[in-house]
Design a binder for these strands. Sequence first.
DNA 1: TTGAAAGCGTTACCAC
DNA 2: GTGGTAACGCTTTCAA
Lengths: 341, 341
Amino acid sequence: MVSKTNSTIRDVAALAGVSLMTVTNVVKKRKSTYGRDAEKRVLDAIETLGYRPNSSAQNLRDSLSRSVGFVISDSNPNFLSDPFISQLVGGLSLHLSSIDYSLDIQGVSPEEFETANIVRKLKNDAFCAILSGPKELRDKHVNFLSKLGKPIAIFQEVDRNSSPNIIIIREDDMSGAYALGKHLLLKKAKNIVFIRPATDWSAVEQREIGLRTALEANGQDVTCETIISMSESYLEVKKVVSSYMEKYKPDAIVAATDAMGVAAMHACEELGFKVPKDIKVAGFNGFEAWQYTKPLMTTVVSPAFEMGRIAGETLLASLSDGEPKQKDIVFSTQLRVSNST
Amino acid sequence: MVSKTNSTIRDVAALAGVSLMTVTNVVKKRKSTYGRDAEKRVLDAIETLGYRPNSSAQNLRDSLSRSVGFVISDSNPNFLSDPFISQLVGGLSLHLSSIDYSLDIQGVSPEEFETANIVRKLKNDAFCAILSGPKELRDKHVNFLSKLGKPIAIFQEVDRNSSPNIIIIREDDMSGAYALGKHLLLKKAKNIVFIRPATDWSAVEQREIGLRTALEANGQDVTCETIISMSESYLEVKKVVSSYMEKYKPDAIVAATDAMGVAAMHACEELGFKVPKDIKVAGFNGFEAWQYTKPLMTTVVSPAFEMGRIAGETLLASLSDGEPKQKDIVFSTQLRVSNST
DNA sequence: TTGAAAGCGTTACCAC
DNA sequence: GTGGTAACGCTTTCAA
C-alpha cells in the first residue's frame, strides 16, 4: 500500500509556486483575489498531490466540530429497530451529509441519560434528543439539555416554553388522535379501548388525550378505557389484549403504535372476532412495514423522516444565525382510513 | 445563557497551580507520575471550570478523526427504512459510541458512489460500505475503496481476495438458502419460484445459488424458476406474483426478503390459494417487523445487528494493530421454520 | 515532578 | 497578488 503522508496546503503552495493565501483563496473559491494562471496551477497541484483539507485542523481553527449529536433515550439498545427513530435518523442524516456535517448517534437508557458520553464530552455543535420515561424525568432531561449551551432540538415533547436554545419538533398527535376518535364514532363504535405501553412517551400521552377529547363530546354514550402493556413486544401485547377481550366486549381498539395494533388485531382474530366487523382496530405511524397487514390498518401517519430533516436544517440555521426564530415546530398528522375500521 | 468560553488545559493548570504535564497525566490516569495532592487539586479545578478536552485539538494532534464512515449504496434516499441496514447501523453505532467514536452515515446512489462526499473528503479513520448494483459496478467500487488507504469493511460481498486493508463481513446466505431448499423438498415442493428484485445485491445472488444447489440434487423431478420484480415495493411484488400465479401453478415461493415474501403471500391468498396448503411461502431476514405475519413466515434469519457490531470492532482493531488477522468474516444464518411452509 | 518549546494543518491578518 | 506570523488546544520531548 502507498504510504499516505497526506499532503498539506503547504505542499500544494510549493508545487504550484504560489503562496499559502492563494491556495486558500482558490480552495475557498474567492474569485477576484487570484488570477487565472495561478488558479490553474493550484488546481493542478491539488490534483497531482491528492490534497484534501484536513478537517481536524479546520475544526480546531474555527472551533466547530461540524457534527450533530443525537441522543436517544430508550431502554432498547437496538433503538434503530423502531421505525419512528430510524426515520428521524434517516431524515437527519440525509440533510447533514448534504452539507458535510456528520452525525453522532448514541442510545442510552433513560436512567443514564445525563451520564451518556455524548452529552458529557459535548463535542458536537448541536444536539437532537428524543426522550422517554416518566414525565418528570423527561422534564429533568429537558432542563439538563437546556444548560448545555448549544442549540438543541427535542422531538415529540410538548413545548415547555423553556430556554431560548431549545427547539421542539413534534407532530400533532392530539389532532390526529382526535380525528381518529371522530372516525370511530362515525363508524358507530361505543366502547373503545386504548392500549399503550408502560413506558412513557410524550406522543403516547398526546394520542390518549386527543382520542378522549373526541369521544367525550358524546357524553355517557361512549366509553373509553386505557389498558397498559408492560412492553411493546408482539407477544406481550397479544397476551394483554387476549385476556382483556375474554372479559369485556369493546367494539374498537386503538393502539398507541401500528406494531401494537397488529398484535391486537391478531389477538382478536385468534379469539374468533372478525376485524372490522366484530371489532375495529387502529394504530399510529403508518410506516412502510405496517402497510402490509391484512386487513390494512387504519392509522394516523407520522412525518418522521421530514421531522428529522427539519431538525437538521433548523439546528444548523440557529448555529449561524443565533437564536432560532421558530421554537415549536408542529407537523400535522394525517388520518389514513383503511379496512380495519 | 452563560457565555461559554471553554476552558483549556492551561486554565486548569493555572487554577490547580500545577504544570500542563501534570494535568495531562491526571486526565490520562497515568498514576505514579503525580502525587495525591496534585491529583486532587487538578480534579477540583476540572470540576469547577467544567473543563472538557477539545476533541478537534486532540484529533489534529494525533491525526485521527475518531470516526468511522458508512457509505450505503442504495437508490432509496430513505435507506434506513431497510431493516437490514438499520440493524447494521444500530450494531455499529452501539459499538462505536461505547468507545467514543462517531459514525458518519451517507447514502448514495450506486451511480454516484465514487463522488460521494464521504469518500472524497476522506475524513474518517475507517470505512464501512454496503454495495448494490450490477456485479461489475460493485467490483469497481470494491477496487475504488481498496485504494483509499484506510481500513475498510464491506458487508455482504463475496471475498475477492483483494487488497490487504479490506475486510469482508457477510452472512452465509448460501447455506441458509440451501437449508431452506432442503426443507421445501422435505415438504414435497416440486415447482419452486424464486422472486427477487431487479436491483443486484450480492446476498440475493447467494440466496439463489444456495436454493438451486439444494434443489438440483433432485434432478428433473423438481423445477426452480426465477422471476424478477422491478422494485421491492409491496404493490409491485404483489402484481408480479399475481400475474405469475394466474398462468402457472408452483407449489412454493421463495422470496429474496421477508418483505417480498409477505407481498407474495398476500397475492396468493387474494387469488384464493391457501398458505401453506396450496402454496408454501418463505423469505429471508427474520427481522422484528416480519414476525407479525399470518401465517408466521418461514425465513432464514440474518444476524445483521451483530454484523454491524463486529465491523466496528474489527475496523478499530486493524486501526491499532495494522492489517486485520481475519479478512473474511462469515456469520452463520439460521433457518426458522414456521407456519407458511 | 516541572517548565519551555515544538508541532499537528488551517486560516486570518499584516505589511509589502 | 506575496510572504511571514500568530493562533486554535493538545501532547510529547527534553532538560532541569
